[in-house]
Design a protein around this nucleic acid. Structure first.
Length: 272
DNA sequence: CACTCTCCCTGAAAGC
DNA sequence: TGCTTTCAGGGAGAGT
C-alpha cells in the first residue's frame, strides 16, 4: 500500500488544498507510532497551505506559518480528503480542517504511521529525513551512486532495495516487482551485480514506479487515494502475491527474506 | 558501523 | 458457523 507510488498518488489528491487556510486541527488519537505533538493546532491554525510534497514515503504539507506537517502512512495509513464530515469513522486519528469546509483525515487501523510538526527550515535536520538515501525516482540515482553503495555488500539485493538509507521510496511489494522486471534474483548479493545489471536495475526501478503512479498506485486490501478512488496497479503485478502461479512453464515462488515475503520466478530471474 | 531480528497494532483471511 | 491462528505493505531500536 503506501510505498512511493501510493504516497505520490496521495500527494496529487491533496493538491487542491493548496492556498487554503487552516481552520483547526483535531487530534483524536494521541499515540500513533510516536506521540502526536500536542501543539499542531497552535502552529497551523489560520495559516495558509503553501506547498504539498513527497520526500521518500513522507508527506510534507508546508504552511506559511513556517511549520510543516509531516505524515508517514506506515503500513495501513491513508489520507482522506472530504467535505462536510458527518461522523468519525473507526481509526480516524487526526483531522486538518480548512475554512473551505474541506477536511483531511488521517485514518490508520494499525497505527504504524506517524504525524509530526517541524519548522520548515529545520526539516532536513530531522533524523528520519536526513538518513534517507536518494529518492528512487531522482535522476541522481545513477550507476556510480548505486554501485558505490552496493559493490562491497554481501546483502541480498532485495534487502538492499528495501534499505531507505540507500534508495528511498521502495517497499516490499515493488521490490519484488522491480527485481522481476530486471530479471535479477532477489537473493543476489549486491557485490555480485555487474555494471549492466545495475544499469538494468535502475531502469526497472524507474519503469515500475512510474507505471504504478500512472495507474494511481496499488489497492491491496482497501488502499484508496485521497479522493477515495482505488488505484489499480495491482492488476499489473507480475509476481507479488502470486505464489504457485506460472509464467509460461515457470512457477512463482514465495520465500522469506529478513522476515518479509519475497515473490520471484527463479527461471526468469536468472541473474545471480 | 553494518547487519539481523523483534516488535509496535488491528483486521482480514486461513485453518480447524 | 465460529473460534483461533497466522500474516500483512514500514521502520525504529536493540542486540550482535
Amino acid at each position: 500500500m503506501p510505498e512511493l507510488p501510493e504516497v505520490e498518488t496521495t500527494i496529487k489528491g491533496l493538491d487542491e488544498i493548496k492556498n487554503h487556510i487552516v481552520h483547526k486541527v483535531i487530534i483524536h488519537t494521541k499515540q500513533l507510532r510516536f506521540k502526536v505533538p500536542y501543539n499542531i493546532n497552535k502552529k497551523l491554525k489560520n495559516s495558509r497551505i503553501s506547498k504539498i510534497k513527497r520526500i521518500a514515503k513522507y508527506i510534507v504539507i508546508e504552511s506559511d506559518s513556517n511549520f510543516s506537517l509531516i505524515i508517514h502512512l506506515g503500513m495501513s495509513g491513508r489520507l482522506k480528503l472530504i467535505s462536510n464530515k458527518f461522523k468519525r469513522d473507526k481509526h480516524d486519528h487526526f483531522e486538518l480542517i480548512l475554512y473551505n469546509n474541506k477536511i483531511i483525515i488521517y485514518n490508520d487501523p494499525r497505527k504504524f504511521g506517524f504525524i509530526d510538526i517541524v519548522e520548515t527550515a529545520n526539516l532536513k535536520k530531522k533524523k528520519y529525513i536526513s538518513n534517507l538515501g536518494i529518492d528512487a525516482l531522482s535522476k541522481e540515482l545513477n550507476y556510480s551512486y548505486l554501485s558505490n553503495k552496493i559493490s562491497k555488500s554481501e546483502v541480498p539485493i532485495k534487502q538492499i532495495l528495501l534499505n531507505q538509507k540507500i534508495i528511498s521510496g521502495i517497499g516490499n511489494i515493488y521490490a519484488s516487482e522491480i527485481l522481476f522486471d530486471a530479471k535479477i534474483s532477489p537473493l543476489t548479493p549486491g557485490n555480485k551485480l555487474r555494471i549492466s545489471h545495475i544499469m538494468k536495475l535502475i531502469c526497472s526501478i524507474r519503469k515500475i514506479l512510474k507505471k504504478a503512479i500512472k495507474f494511481g498506485g496499488s489497492s491491496i486490501r482497501d488502499y484508496k487515494s485521497a479522493d477515495g478512488t482505488l488505484g489499480n496497479f495491482q492488476k499489473n503485478f507480475k509476481v507479488y502475491n502470486k505464489e504457485g502461479k506460472k509464467i509460461g512453464k515457470n512457477s512463482i515462488l514465495r520465500i522469506i527474506q529478513y522476515g518479509r515475503s519475497t515473490f520471484y520466478c527463479p527461471n526468469i530471474q536468472n541473474i545471480k
